[in-house]
Design a protein around this nucleic acid. Structure first.
Lengths: 327, 327
DNA sequence: CTGAAAGCGCTAACAG
DNA sequence: CTGTTAGCGCTTTCAG
């Protein structure tokens, strides 16, 4: 590359990074040579020399849950006109895998780490605390962050939903959700939810926890099973919109009046549910916004390394849709 | 690190990589020191020194299309017990962005590149051709691959669906799909489809192309619009299962007999549709399998750098579900 | 505006 | 089994 353009390696480097003053003439010569050779600079060497890596590690459980693609797209958008680029690692909700992925990613010395959740293994927390880059824990604010934190309080989200259901006059409430050990945030919502009911002197009348399979199909199946087991239910709360949609489809299929006879609510506000015969009551998890804010926090710390850690709790909005009676 | 354990840097390196013989005693000492210090080796330096990077670049259009998360999970699974790790880059179906992402990723000298589609800009093709690592173009086999290729023939997939519809006796066929310029594969399916109809002396009776919005809602909307515009349609082919599901919901809502009065078919076989009141006719795109095979091709080339380029066309299976009359 | 020297943190290759 | 010596391909820093 240096020979092909007849200038020093250093000058080539300057041209390709638009750094430092270089005459327009040599500039042109270098660019031509680069194009002719199909030259792709070696970022590994560059990163080693400059100790700057324009990568942001994003560590999330899975892509199956529609939530995360949206968070990611928020992140991508916010980083769009910066130098930084997101790199994703998947944990499958497994702490050991999270540990492995974090180790792997940190060994590339990224400019920032965005990681889902506040619950990590001891080792993971240690790595994150030691990493000399900004760390942002996202999705959840119910706990002690290592550095920055952006999310919603899932406990509060569950509580608000519980309160709305009670206020709307429902009394025999069932719950259908994913198996909890896998998903702390779903569990926190469940806790907030039961607590809200308890305050009104109610208990969960029936509940069901599933794992695996098509969420929509599971929703139908489990709803059917639950209603035949506990026929006097007047409301079902689902841990996400997909199973909720399945439940809705089942009830409509059976000619059951929603929300008069049985009310329904999900969680997330995925735009999928826009197309259903009735709009499911749900609560927005602020996914996109969380991604954006998290990315901005990384950028902020880059500009000012002394910037303080921020904990930002967003407010999820409840939409009653057409499956939860209004009060 | 070297000081803390009292051995040479080299020995540390050997222990941490399980390379070369080291006595169990020093091994232990090094590991302890590493843990105590929270030492995370610098892969940048390692990669530069060894010119080995255990990363596989995966370049796909988007995560919104459910297809890609599944492909990715196939890739992850196949790489699970190798050294390699997938790193994803997004193009948003934009050639310029693909170019940028490829450049960026290639500059990290990955061990392999897996990229969606066979259509790339001149510059992208040149980069890929020059990259000194295995390249696998996935999803599509209708075209000339640069190196390896795994996918299905979308033209053929469209043709088979067209033939099945004709054989089932449908004559007034509509099409609803995404705007084509964005998606070559959808276009190829459309081409194959119209060709199959043409062979039977038929033409598309009506068609509609959308972009953006909730696929399910769009499906309902556009299906309604199309049927009121062209009431004698007896079949609608959708470019994906999500809009197809929206159409199905609309028709059932209207009390229209499916598949007697109007037949429906989608494309992809996403397991979402398992939960619908009727199983939508669809065609499996072999997403997971494509991911797996692609990853294996990268691994194969790693083991034997002289391995020849492979072009692998998988066979999508048609499932008539319950929305396409059987013959 | 351009170049030369030094070194980023590791590993290959060779010696003991 | 362990240590030493050279770089990997860039960028930083300092001289022109």
């Amino acid at each position: 590359m240096s020979e092909a353009s007849g200038v020093s390696e250093m000058t080539v480097s300057r041209v390709l990074r638009n750094k430092g003053d270089v005459s327009e003439a040599t500039r042109e010569r270098v660019r031509e040579a680069a194009k002719a050779l199909g030259y792709v600079p070696n970022k590994i060497a560059g990163a080693l020399a400059s100790s700057r890596v324009n990568l942001v590690a994003v560590v999330i459980p899975s892509f199956k849950n529609l939530v995360f693609p949206e968070v990611l797209s928020g992140i991508s958008e916010a980083l769009e006109d910066s130098e930084l680029q997101p790199v994703v690692g998947l944990t499958d909700y497994l702490p050991e895998k999270e540990e492995k992925v974090l180790f792997e990613m940190l060994s590339w010395r990224p400019s920032g780490v965005i990681v889902a959740g506040l619950e990590h293994s001891e080792a993971s927390r240690a790595m994150l605390a030691r990493a000399d880059c900004p760390v942002v824990e996202i999705m959840d604010t119910d706990g002690e962050p290592i550095d920055n934190c952006v999310g919603i309080s899932h406990r509060r989200a569950g509580r608000i939903m519980g309160e709305s259901i009670v206020e709307a006059g429902y009394r025999r409430v069932g719950f259908i959700g994913t198996k909890m050990p896998l998903d702390y945030r779903a569990r926190k919502r469940f806790e907030g939810f039961t607590r809200a009911l308890a305050k009104a002197g109610l208990e969960i009348a029936d509940s069901e926890f599933y794992s695996g399979g098509s969420a929509l199909a599971k929703g139908r199946e489990l709803t059917q099973a639950m209603l035949s087991r506990t026929p006097d239910l007047d409301f079902i709360y689902y841990s996400n919109d997909m199973i909720g949609a399945g439940g809705l489809i089942h009830l409509l299929d059976q000619g059951i009046d929603v929300p008069g006879q049985v009310g329904l609510a999900g969680f997330n506000g995925v735009d999928l549910i826009d197309g259903l015969p009735q709009r499911l009551a749900t609560m927005d998890a602020c996914r996109r916004q969380i991604g954006e804010r998290a990315a901005r926090l990384v950028l902020a710390r880059q500009e000012d390394p002394s910037a303080e850690a921020v904990k930002e709790e967003l407010t999820p909005t409840l939409s009653t849709g057409e499956t939860l009676l209004r009060t």
